[in-house]
Simulated assay, not measured.
Amino acid sequence: MQIVNHSELHCEWNWLKEQIIDSKLNWIHSSSQAWPYIAKLPGNTTIRRLYAAWSAVSYTCEKPSLLVSHGPRPAMYASTLAFGRLKKTPHLAFSFNFTQLPSSRRQMLMTRAFQSIDRFTVFSSMEKELYSHIFSLDPKRIDVLHWAVQPHRKSQLIKPIQDTHYLCAVGSQGRDYRVLMKVMSQLPNCRLHLVAYPENLLNLDIPENVTVHQHVSFTFAAALIAHADAMILPLIGSEVPCGHVTAVMAMHLGVPVIATDSIGLHDYLRHGDTAVLFPSNQAHALKQCLESFLDDPTHLRLCADRAFKFAQKYCVEERTVEYFQDYIEHTFGFTPIVTITSDSYSK
């Protein structure tokens, strides 16, 4: 049987191939990053996506297969181009997440395409409710799985800056850096290192105690979080399905998190338990959280300890492997052999 991965990721990537080694499974990856010669054509991004989707669907016609589309856009293209050819091929839409909801026209196209997909995997309960409503999907077809990573160890991450004590903020999707910059301007003795794209900082005054890092590596961002006193995760609203990646990274590294109280994060961050949360768009509330932490970090550090244990149990690659094992067993009637095992680690 074939596992056909369909994504916009690097061509060499093949999801769980190294963890699930069952000889009954043959792994294939169809990526929109393939066909580099198309890059010179007008509208090359769309053409690449179409090629990748058509290639993925074609693979499923060769022998019994499972199609796994990673992200909503690949899922839409594959389902649309299938023209009914996937009736006997299960289609899993994994990592089904929108950082920005589609326009009304695209929403209509997606709603039609998504009806033929068997299951969807999202990373928060809020997204399950939201997407089932927006795309007219039966909630029973949507599974909630915690965002999972193979965690870094702090000891392996070299501190990338000279400051002894500092706060950090990392990320670009759904962020409210306007509020954060306002608060930092009122705390001149507190250092902040910020990783963001230029578009996140348009028309913002950057205080002197804030250092901005742009176009840095993933390792740099991870190391910056690892050695910070705390990470701030300011979001633009209370219903934003963003921030899981950086939140889980900080949790794995044992770094305290101060975040916007968004229901999109409630599966990970609970106020007073695994983080300190503040109301969205309220600078004075964020300032109070930071001042309390700077005066006495004990409470937030205890939250970080509980968050670390939570992440170690639920936000690890083993849970994703288990989920996919169960999906294959339910769909095809056998449990594939895996190599990954639970591995406790220290911060």
Rank of each mutant, 00 (worst) to 15 (best):
I161W: 00
D118Q: 15
R112S: 07
L187K: 03
S125I: 05
Y131D: 14
M184S: 02
I142G: 03
Q107V: 15
I161R: 00
M126C: 10
V144G: 02
T164Y: 08
V170I: 04
C190H: 01
R175E: 11
Q107H: 11
W147E: 10
G171E: 06
R141G: 14
S124E: 07
D138C: 08
F123Y: 15
S132Y: 07
S185W: 00
K128R: 11
I161H: 01
D176M: 03
L180T: 05
L167H: 02
R175K: 11
A169M: 04
L130R: 14
T121F: 05
P188M: 00
D118V: 08
D163W: 00
S124N: 09
K159T: 07
Q107I: 14
L157A: 11
P139N: 12
P188T: 00
V144D: 00
K154V: 12
C168T: 08
F123Q: 15
I158G: 10
S103N: 11
L192F: 09
T121S: 12
S104V: 12
K140Q: 10
L192Q: 05
Q162M: 13
V179C: 03
S103L: 11
V144M: 04
K140L: 14
H146P: 07
Q162K: 14
F114G: 09
G174D: 13
A169F: 01
Q186I: 01
M181T: 01
V149N: 13
D163R: 00
V122A: 05
Y131Q: 09
H133D: 13
C190L: 05
L137A: 09
I134C: 13
Q115W: 13
V170C: 02
D163N: 05
F123G: 08
H165A: 12
F135V: 09
I117H: 08
L180Q: 08
R106Y: 09
Y166E: 00
Q186P: 02
V179I: 12
K159F: 07
D143N: 12
K140Y: 13
Q150S: 11
L194G: 02
P151K: 08
M181K: 01
R112K: 12
F123N: 11
A113Q: 08
N189L: 10
R141S: 13
L130T: 15
P188K: 02
Y131N: 05
R191T: 06
Y166K: 00
L167Q: 04
L137Y: 14
I134S: 15
V183A: 00
L194K: 01
F114D: 05
L109W: 08
S172I: 15
R153I: 14
V170M: 01
I142F: 03
K128C: 03
S155A: 06
H133N: 15
L109V: 08
Q173G: 13
P188G: 04
